[in-house]
Computed example of a mutant assay.
Amino acid sequence: MKNGLFILLGFILLISCKKDDNETEEPPDQTHPKMFYRNLGDIEVKFGQIKYLDIDNDGVRDFYFNVQLVGDPVLQRDRIQYLANSLQQRYLLNDAQDQSPVLNKLDPISKTYEGYTWYEISSILLAEKIVTFNGNFWEGLWKDADHKFLPVQVKKNRELYHGWIELSFDKGKELLILHRSGISTEEDKEVKAGY
């Protein structure tokens, strides 16, 4: 009887310790701000689809990803474009070609990033498949991304919160994969990608 009670108690403790997919955690590095993480469940974004994200769990859409076809009759080719987009009071880093840097784990994300500017209501070309009569090929900084990090900002009550979205690109299946996101819960603090 006692053994059965101990097994039942152990089982209840094990179930109660299960982690939620969305949680706020204190990072091990005490200089890093507290973060809210969201498991995106490896969302796949394919041609003709739009996937919205609420990375800070406040019920408001922050960013969306889509795939669109753009015809180019002058050069006689089509472009299948994979895009990241920010909404109102949400920001993406843009360079002069409307591309965003591909960050590795632990790369810093802050108010300034050399060669890039934070833009509200922005659209970033991650990668594109070029379809021609002579064959197809891929272009874009993110075309070979494998668990890389897109830097993002969210503005609330006039304060900026830095974060990231982890994503991969599968050229064979022609899709973008959204793995997880993280956003600081402390305003205007530098964060590390993937941390």
Rank of each mutant, 00 (worst) to 15 (best):
E26T: 10
P28E: 15
N57Q: 05
D58K: 08
G135D: 09
I15G: 07
D78Y: 10
Q76T: 05
G71Q: 14
G194W: 01
L92M: 08
M35Y: 05
T112A: 13
V70R: 10
V70T: 05
E139A: 11
E186M: 11
F6M: 09
L176D: 02
L14T: 14
L150P: 01
D58A: 15
E187W: 03
L13T: 02
K51Q: 13
N66K: 09
P101C: 12
R180W: 02
K143F: 06
Q68P: 00
V45A: 14
R79A: 09
I43H: 12
Y113C: 12
V70A: 15
E128N: 07
R90A: 14
E186S: 15
L175R: 12
C17W: 02
N85I: 00
W118G: 09
F11S: 15
L53T: 05
V152S: 08
I55M: 13
Q99P: 04
Q68M: 08
G10A: 15
T24Y: 07
Q30F: 07
G71M: 05
G163F: 01
L160P: 04
K18H: 10
L126H: 01
Q89K: 14
K171G: 13
P28W: 04
W138G: 13
H147F: 07
G48P: 03
D107H: 03
S110Y: 02
Y64P: 00
Y82W: 04
I50Y: 05
S100K: 01
I183Q: 02
D72C: 06
L103A: 04
E174K: 04
D20M: 06
F133E: 11
V74H: 12
Y161L: 10
G71R: 07
D78G: 12
A145N: 10
L14F: 14
G48W: 00
E190T: 14
G194Y: 02
G172E: 13
N85Y: 00
Y91G: 07
A127G: 07
I177D: 07
D20K: 08
N134K: 06
Y52M: 07
G71D: 13
I183D: 02
Y52N: 15
T117E: 14
V154F: 01
K34S: 11
N22M: 03
L13P: 01
Q81V: 10
D98C: 01
A127F: 01
D78T: 07
V74T: 13
Y161T: 10
D98Y: 06
R79K: 06
G194K: 03
V191T: 08
E186N: 13
G59F: 00
G4R: 01
H32N: 12
P101V: 04
T132S: 15
C17L: 09
Q68Y: 06
L141K: 09
Q99L: 08
D42T: 00
D54R: 02
E186F: 09
H162G: 08
M1I: 03
L13V: 05
L9P: 00
Y64Q: 01
T117R: 10
D54M: 04
Y64A: 05
